[in-house]
C-alpha cells in the first residue's frame, strides 16, 4: 500500500511538474515520499518552520519518526484534496469517509496532522469527529470508538450521579 501511494505522489509532484521544488518526507519505516514544497508548507507549520530554519529546501529530508508509511500516504492524499479545493467541503467529506471506513487509521492521521502542525486540517478533522459525537450517548461513543470503560466502581457511581444531576 505504501509503495503504491509513493509512486502516485512522486508522479504527481516531480514528473508532471519537474520545475517545482520538492522535499522528501521519510516515514518511520524508512519509506520516502517526495512532496511538493508549496503543497506541504501550505499545510504543515512544522515543515514550513523547518525549511525556514534550514535556509532552503535543497536535498531536504524530513524524518517523521512516529508516522508510518500508510498513515503518511493517507495524510498526503487528504492534503492533496485540501490543496485542490478552495472550500473545505470536499476534504470534510473525505475525512468523514475515512472516519466511517477506517477509524483506526483516522486517529493515526489525526495524530500525524497534530505532530506536523497541520493546523487547519487538524481543526477540520476534529470538527468532523465532534459533529459525529453530538447526540451520542456514552455507550454509543464507546461502541463507535471501541473504547473500554476503564472506570472503577466508585468512579462509575460518581458518573451515574453526574448523569442523574444532568438529565433527571
Amino acid at each position: 500500500m505504501s509503495t503504491e501511494s509513493k509512486e502516485i505522489l512522486v508522479g504527481e509532484s516531480s514528473q508532471a511538474k519537474p520545475e517545482k521544488k520538492t522535499i522528501v518526507l521519510m516515514a518511520s519505516d524508512g519509506d520516502e515520499f517526495v512532496v511538493d514544497v508549496d503543497d506541504i508548507t501550505n499545510q504543515s507549520e512544522m515543515i514550513r518552520n523547518l525549511i525556514s530554519d534550514m535556509g532552503g529546501t535543497d536535498g531536504l529530508q524530513v524524518p517523521l519518526l512516529n508516522v508510518t508509511a500508510p498513515v503518511l500516504a493517507k495524510l498526503l492524499e487528504l492534503f492533496n484534496v485540501s490543496n485542490k479545493n478552495d472550500d473545505d467541503e470536499e476534504v470534510t467529506q473525505k475525512v468523514k469517509e475515512l472516519m466511517e471506513a477506517e477509524l483506526n487509521m483516522m486517529i493515526d492521521v489525526l495524530g500525524a496532522a497534530n505532530y506536523i502542525e497541520a493546523t487547519s486540517f487538524f481543526d477540520l478533522s476534529c470538527k468532523v469527529l465532534a459533529d459525529k459525537f453530538k447526540g451520542m450517548s456514552v455507550e454509543e461513543v464507546r461502541e463507535f470508538l471501541n473504547i473500554e470503560c476503564d472506570f472503577t466502581e466508585e468512579e462509575l457511581q460518581q458518573i451515574h450521579a453526574e448523569n442523574a444531576w444532568a438529565f433527571d
Partner: peptide, 18 residues
C-alpha cells in the same frame, strides 16, 4: 479540540466515556 466543539450536554456524555 473535540471537547471544545461539543455542546454542553454532549460534553457531559464525553466525560463519561473513559
Amino acid at each position: 479540540k473535540i471537547s471544545a466543539r461539543l455542546p454542553l450536554i454532549d460534553y457531559l456524555s464525553f466525560r463519561g466515556v473513559c
